[in-house]
Amino acid sequence: MSLKKKLGMGVASAALGLALIGGGTYAYFSDTAEATGNFAAGTLQLSTNPTEIINVTNIKPGDTMLRSFDLNNDGSLDIAKILLKTSYTVTDAKGGNTEDFGKHIRVNFLYNGDKVDDVIWNTTLDKLQSLSPDVIAGNIFSPWLGERGGKLAAGTHDKLWVQFEFVDNKEDQNQFQGDSLQLKWTFEGKQGAGVAK
């Protein structure tokens, strides 16, 4: 065997030896494990049925109008608090009104369901429009949804009753003849406090 072949064979043997030694230093037992997680947020979905609670014409002082509507929680989370925002616009048919028509429309909030004989709270539309949502929530929705502790549970609905009254103040109310009032109620559902899961 020539010197070149011996040197080549020696270099190859040394390289193989180093590879085996190097490879041997990384040999060990091993194992793996995986863990996964999933987070799915719940939903709040509040709706009313019907969406138009009242639509009447030809009202006069002393008239009352009893209406009901369903407040639905179509979401997956309980609604712990319901806020109500009131707004309205008045169309003055003759012009020159000295008073707000909303001051003469009283809202009588009645007990939930078939318990329509008791008023839990009443106020006029103009006052209702200026009240803070927390005052309204405490005075209206806690009693209205009383059997559930003021909550609207996920997947449930409640039938709520409200009476509107054109208050007869025993004075001249001629300025309101032909007037109209467009009412908008915006209900907002709020989640409860977070809990350990």
Rank of each mutant, 00 (worst) to 15 (best):
M65V: 15
A12S: 10
G17R: 04
S180A: 15
L181S: 06
Q175V: 09
L7S: 11
N55P: 01
K127A: 10
P143S: 01
W121P: 04
K94M: 12
V167H: 02
T32N: 12
G178S: 09
I82D: 00
K94I: 11
K197H: 11
T51W: 02
A41M: 10
L128V: 04
L7I: 15
G96Q: 05
N38Q: 10
N174P: 02
Y88N: 05
I82K: 01
G113Q: 06
T25V: 13
A154D: 03
Q163C: 09
N174V: 14
Q191A: 15
P50I: 12
K151T: 12
I105A: 00
N112F: 00
S76N: 11
T86G: 05
V56D: 06
F166N: 00
A15K: 01
A93F: 13
D134K: 07
Y28C: 12
L160Q: 01
A193R: 09
T86Q: 14
A41L: 14
M1P: 08
S2M: 06
A19E: 00
I59C: 01
D31P: 00
D114R: 06
F187K: 03
G149Y: 04
I21F: 07
L131T: 04
I120G: 02
F176D: 00
L66K: 09
G23E: 03
L71G: 00
L20P: 01
G42N: 07
G62A: 05
I140M: 08
G96I: 05
